[in-house]
Design a protein around this nucleic acid. Structure first.
Length: 116
DNA sequence: CTGATGACTATAG
DNA sequence: CCTATAGCCATCA
């Protein structure tokens, strides 16, 4: 058994937590899953589970706001269609991360002077 | 063991 | 806006 499988489950769980109408970057998913340097693992986890049910894989995009899929591929087209259906895809074909990037309860990341 | 690869990213010019 | 580069880590030849 590889420890990677456990990480993979955490990654998939995190992706399942992305709310409708929001998107997350590979690096963001990795960080939330407890793998700050695991962006590559997120990509691998998705590649290993292309048909996992209950997995909104299309909400995972690149940090620059574009799809990571090969342009023109079936997955690429499906991802764009799904994102457009949720109303997060701009006419330019690029996602406005400032507006639609998933913002979970960030309290744990905020600077809290009273804790120092 | 070594080097290449990938549904990636941040930074620099 | 663009390209180049280093860093990343599991997997494969």
């Amino acid at each position: 058994m590889s420890g990677f499988l456990l990480k993979e489950q955490k990654i998939l769980s995190t992706i399942r937590a992305i709310p409708m109408g929001s998107v997350a970057s590979y690096g963001q998913i990795a960080t939330i899953a407890g793998l700050p340097k695991g962006h590559r693992l997120v990509a691998r986890a998705l590649r290993n589970n292309p048909d996992a049910s209950d997995l909104p894989w299309y909400r995972v995009i690149r940090a620059d706001g574009y799809s990571g899929m090969a342009k023109g591929s079936a997955s690429y087209l499906q991802q764009l269609a799904s994102l457009k259906a949720e109303g997060v895809l701009a006419n330019t074909g690029r996602i406005d991360m400032k507006r639609y990037q998933w913002q979970p309860d960030m309290d744990i990341f905020l600077f809290r002077p009273q804790d120092l």
